[in-house]
Simulated assay, not measured.
Amino acid sequence: MLAQERHELILRSLRRHGRLRVADLVAELGVSAITVRRDLAELDTAGLLRRVHGGAIGTRTAELPARGSQLTIGIVVPSAAPYYSDVIRGAEAMADRYGARLVLGVSGYDSATERERIDKVLGIGIAGLLISTALGDGAADRLGSRLDELDVPVVLMERAFGFPHVAREYDHVRTDHAYGAMLALRHFVALGHRRIAVNLQATVTAYWLRLGLETAAKALGVEVFLSPVDLPMRGDDPGAVAQLDAFLAECESFGSRAVLVHSDEHGARLVERAMELGLRVPEDLSVIAYNDVTAALAVVPLTAVCPPRLALGETACDLLLRKIQTPTTPVQHLSLLPTLNIRTSCGAADPHLR
């Protein structure tokens, strides 16, 4: 087959699919990968397509893809619960601005399921992948070479994997949760609290919150007690009342009237139980929640640290799409700062902390 014939077939396939993979073209054209890459390089030089890692995409000077066909990117997250649903919505909004399509996979915090979801979206022919893995940063080595095997650009969300766990550096966008913990402690100090009790879920976020609490406590000169009690998510959980009472007893023993709780559900239930026991919120117990998904809907609206969930999805998707368009873009490690939304559960508002 002559080079010009191959070029015509490549461009026809590009119009049909919106993106090309070298492996697919090798099978379709019956030539070597070296030949395909040379053809793509020539077409890129001519401005008829744009080469990307593992294949090629269209450019503004190339013919438009066939009707109903558009650039497709994948997004794999550990949960579709409210936190990640906002991240997904942000990514979807940004993809729409680029005229791209988003395909979702949910792993349920299971590594095997995650691999299946990645393979599924790759099979669709995605041009790039947004992923928040089921594993935290400390367990990156359990991913093995899976990320390195992907032949499309990858942007990590709320995760940061690098050498020696993976062979190459990856773009990532994450929330600075350590800063979020500092915001909470700083507000408590502004309200006069010097002893602060903390209860954290056993999540990936907990590591960064503990780091931020340790740093902020030293800087602010306050005492922090990190409770080992597992708080219930719902009031009907077995042992819920006993767990809540145990934590409140710890707070009393520590001499703390200020509590940071991760997450909103725990904070809301804690406030309800405290009031059942005759405590006044915020006069007897001042509460800050972390996540701010449902904090405003609590019986006593909760002051809460709010990670920039929508902005995180938007930023990560924008970074990925720019990487697809220009593969030579330098790798970026971006941190987004959370904010503190002050409500009734703390009893005072400091305009400087908004």
Rank of each mutant, 00 (worst) to 15 (best):
L191E: 13
R195V: 01
I196C: 04
A197C: 09
L200E: 02
L200K: 01
L200C: 05
Q201W: 10
Q201T: 12
A202V: 07
A202K: 11
T203E: 07
T203N: 06
T203Y: 09
T205E: 13
Y207M: 10
Y207C: 11
W208K: 13
L209C: 07
L209M: 08
L209W: 03
L209P: 00
G212N: 08
G212C: 13
E214L: 13
T215A: 14
T215C: 10
A216V: 14
A216F: 11
A217R: 12
V222F: 00
V222Y: 04
V224D: 06
F225Y: 14
F225G: 04
L226S: 05
S227Q: 02
P228K: 05
V229K: 01
L231Y: 04
L231Q: 04
P232M: 01
P232I: 03
M233C: 09
R234A: 03
R234Y: 11
R234D: 09
D236W: 06
D237P: 01
P238I: 04
P238Y: 01
P238D: 05
A240Q: 09
A240F: 10
A240N: 12
A240M: 13
V241I: 15
A242S: 15
Q243T: 11
D245F: 05
A246L: 11
L248T: 05
A249N: 03
A249V: 06
E250R: 04
C251Y: 06
C251P: 03
S253V: 01
S256T: 00
A258L: 04
L260C: 03
L260A: 00
V261P: 01
H262F: 05
D264I: 03
E265M: 14
H266K: 14
G267T: 05
G267M: 14
L270R: 07
V271A: 05
E272N: 11
R273D: 02
A274P: 03
A274E: 02
A274T: 02
M275G: 00
E276F: 01
L277T: 10
L277C: 14
G278Y: 08
L279E: 00
L279R: 01
R280V: 06
V281L: 00
D284N: 03
L285I: 08
L285S: 05
S286L: 07
S286Q: 12
S286M: 10
V287L: 08
V287P: 00
I288H: 12
A289Q: 04
D292T: 12
V293F: 12
V293Q: 15
T294S: 15
T294I: 15
T294C: 11
A295V: 08
A296N: 12
A298G: 10
V299F: 13
V299K: 15
V300I: 09
V300P: 01
V300G: 01
P301Y: 08
P301G: 09
P301C: 07
P301K: 10
T303P: 10
T303Y: 11
A304H: 02
A304S: 13
V305E: 03
C306H: 15
P308Y: 06
P308L: 06
R309C: 11
R309Q: 14
L310Y: 11
A311I: 11
A311P: 07
L312E: 00
L312S: 04
L312W: 01
G313D: 08
E314T: 14
T315D: 02
T315V: 07
T315Y: 07
T315K: 07
A316I: 02
C317H: 07
D318Y: 03
D318T: 06
L321D: 02
K323A: 07
K323H: 13
K323L: 10
I324F: 03
I324S: 07
I324H: 02
Q325G: 15
Q325V: 13
T326V: 15
